[in-house]
Each structure stands twice: as structure tokens, then as C-alpha cells.
């Protein structure tokens, strides 16, 4: 992660659903946050945008592990994305953005690219 990130508070810990995902809105667009209590770390942030269907839906996929990768399956056409790297298991050329997620007290924070960078990354 580069230095040009900003931390945004996106929701409360109790908004998360154990074993599943929720979507939040950030300055970098929609982000999917998964809360997997049995894993370390227990929180993962990836883009909510499914590059195969073009819809914002990844938070609504089923999580699990496949051949050693922690993954979420897109609810539309079922491709699997690695929650740690964003790489698609079915097509390694496709990689979606990932984001660091932290907890501060009861608040959930996400690191997203700083706003001045947005023009450069968009």
C-alpha cells in the first residue's frame, strides 16, 4: 500500500456479518468488506465491483476456501476472487483492487487511495 492512502470510517463492527460480506461506499467507490472470525486477519476488503458482469455485487457472494486460497464467489457468474490478493482463480489476468481494513474501538476503517490520487488511478 502506498503512502497516498486515507483512512475512512465506514461502519460499526456490529454492522458486519460473521462469515459473510457487506458493501460500503468510500471515496474510491464501492468496497466489499468480509468478516471471517475464524481467520487471521478476520477482515478483508476488496472492490465490490464484479469485473465479469459489471455489477456491484461481490459483497453478496459466498466465502470459502479453494485450493488454499481464501475466496469469495461472484454471485452472478460464480468466478472466485482471492480475498488477500484480488486475483481471480479462473483467470489470473484479472485482478481486482484490495483494501486494508482495521478496527478502532467499534469502528471499521478502510484504507483507500487518497482523493487527490483518484484522477491518476481512475
Amino acid at each position: 500500500m502506498s503512502n497516498n492512502t486515507q483512512q475512512c470510517s465506514v461502519c460499526r463492527l456490529r454492522d458486519l456479518i460473521p462469515g459473510s460480506g457487506i458493501a460500503v461506499w468510500t471515496p474510491a467507490g464501492p468496497v466489499a468488506i468480509f468478516y471471517l472470525p475464524e481467520q487471521t486477519p478476520s477482515m478483508y476488503g476488496i472492490s465490490h465491483h464484479d469485473p465479469f458482469s459489471g455489477a456491484n455485487v461481490l459483497a453478496r457472494g459466498i466465502t470459502g476456501d479453494l485450493k488454499g486460497h481464501l475466496v469469495v464467489a461472484s454471485p452472478i457468474y460464480k468466478q472466485h476472487f482471492d480475498l488477500r490478493t484480488g486475483v481471480c482463480l479462473e483467470d489470473e489476468n484479472v485482478r481486482i483492487p484490495t483494501y486494508q481494513v482495521h478496527v478502532d474501538g467499534g469502528d471499521v476503517l478502510v484504507d483507500v487511495p487518497a482523493e487527490e490520487d483518484e484522477a491518476a488511478t481512475a
Binding site: I17, P18, G19, V57
Partner: peptide, 22 residues
Amino acid sequence: ATDHVPLQDTNDTFMANMQKNG
């Protein structure tokens, strides 16, 4: 029921059928 939520396909979780645009 809380335990069952993460198990369901999105259609079952949200009790509706997802369309191509979400």
C-alpha cells in the same frame, strides 16, 4: 437465521433473484 446467512446463494440470502445488473 444468523448461522445460515453465510451459506446461502445471494438469491436465498435476499429472498429474491439477482439480475445481471445487481
